[in-house]
Amino acid sequence: MSSTPRVWDAGAAREWVAVPRQGDDKYSRGVLGVITGSTPYPGAAVLGVDAAMRTGVGMVRYVGPSAVTGAVLARRPEVVGGVGRVQAWLIGSGMDAQKRSPTLADELGRAVREGVPCVIDAGALDLVGDATGPVVMTPHFRELQRALAGHDSDATVDAIASDPPRWAQRGADLLGVTVLLKGATTWVAHPGSAAISVTDAPGWLATAGTGDVLGGVLGALVATHAREIETDAATAMPALAATAAWLHARAAELASGGGPITALDVAEDLPTTIAALLG
C-alpha cells in the first residue's frame, strides 16, 4: 500500500454527503440506532442524537435508560424510542465499560452482532471484536492504547501520541476495522490502505462533548450510506469517517468565529456547514 497519507478536503467530503431525492422517505434516507449515554452522562446521548439529526439521517431510534431517553426526547422529540430496524448503530459514547448492567450488555451485544455497520466509541470499544458487520471505532490516544494492549506491547500512550498516523494504521491492521483516531489532527486508517488526515480544526474544539457530536455525525453518514457500505465497505467506511471529521471541524470553525464554543454550538452549525459544502 502507499505510505503517503491523503489529506481530506471539501471535494472529497462532498462525495459522501447523501442528498435526499424526490420520493425518498424517512426510511430510505437511513435509520440510525443509538445506544449512548448513561445516568451519570446523559449529555453524551443528547449531543450525539442532536448531531445525527442535523447531519441528515432519516430517523434515529434511541435505546437507553428512561431518564436518558427523556433527556433525548426533550431535546429532539422526533426521535423514536426503542429497538427497531436500523441501517447502522452508534454505540458507547458516555458509557463506562466497567459499569455495564446486564441489560445494557445485552443491548450492546445484540447491536454489534446484528451485522449492520457500527460506529463504536468510548465505553463500547471492548466490543469491536464481537461485531459481525463493518466497524469504525473512534478512540482518542488512551482508548486506542487500551484496545491494542493485548495485541502489541509497544502500544503506549506516549508512542501513539508521538506518531498518530502509524498507530491509527497499526490499530486498523491489528483489529481489522476502520480507525478514526481523534486528536489535533484526526487520522483515519483502514486495513491495507493509506491513512487519511483531516487537519485545521480550531483549538476551541478541544472541549467536553465534541467527541459525542462527532459520533453522531459519523453515525448519520454511515446510516445514509448503507448501500455503499454493503457494496464496498473498504472504500466507504474510511471515506465516511474522514468526511465526518471534516464536517465536524468545519462546523466548529463556523461556530467559533475565532472564539470559544461548546459542543452544542458545533451540532447546531452542522446544517449550515453541509449547505455550504453542497452549494
Rank of each mutant, 00 (worst) to 15 (best):
E228L: 14
T55G: 07
V17W: 05
D154Q: 14
A239H: 06
V188Y: 12
R76C: 14
G30K: 13
D163F: 13
M1R: 12
V177Q: 03
H151Q: 09
T243L: 00
V119H: 13
R75L: 05
D130I: 01
V34S: 14
A208G: 08
P117R: 03
R6G: 06
G258R: 03
L144W: 07
A252E: 08
V222R: 00
P42L: 03
T132P: 05
A172Q: 08
W89L: 05
V19H: 02
A184P: 00
V112M: 05
H190C: 07
R110P: 11
P134Q: 06
V68E: 03
V119G: 12
A97T: 01
V79A: 06
D50Y: 11
W16H: 07
A184H: 14
G81V: 15
T210V: 06
A252D: 11
D50H: 15
H225Y: 11
V49G: 09
D173Y: 03
S101M: 04
G58F: 05
L104D: 01
G33H: 10
V198Q: 04
A172I: 09
A242F: 03
R29K: 15
D200W: 06
G257F: 06
Y41Q: 00
W246G: 07
A255C: 10
P202L: 06
A220H: 00
D163P: 14
P191D: 02
G215A: 15
E228Y: 09
T4C: 09
V188P: 05
V119Q: 14
A244L: 00
P139H: 08
G64E: 01
R110V: 00
A252R: 02
Y27G: 03
V135W: 13
A242V: 00
A71G: 01
V179K: 04
R61D: 04
I91E: 02
R100N: 01
D130W: 13
W187N: 04
L247F: 07
I160C: 09
R166M: 14
A51F: 10
A236H: 00
P191I: 09
I160F: 12
W16K: 04
S153M: 06
H140A: 11
R113M: 02
R14S: 13
L47I: 04
V119A: 12
R21D: 10
D121H: 11
V7L: 15
T69D: 04
A155R: 10
A223C: 06
L32Q: 11
S101P: 04
V136F: 12
Q145S: 14
A233R: 00
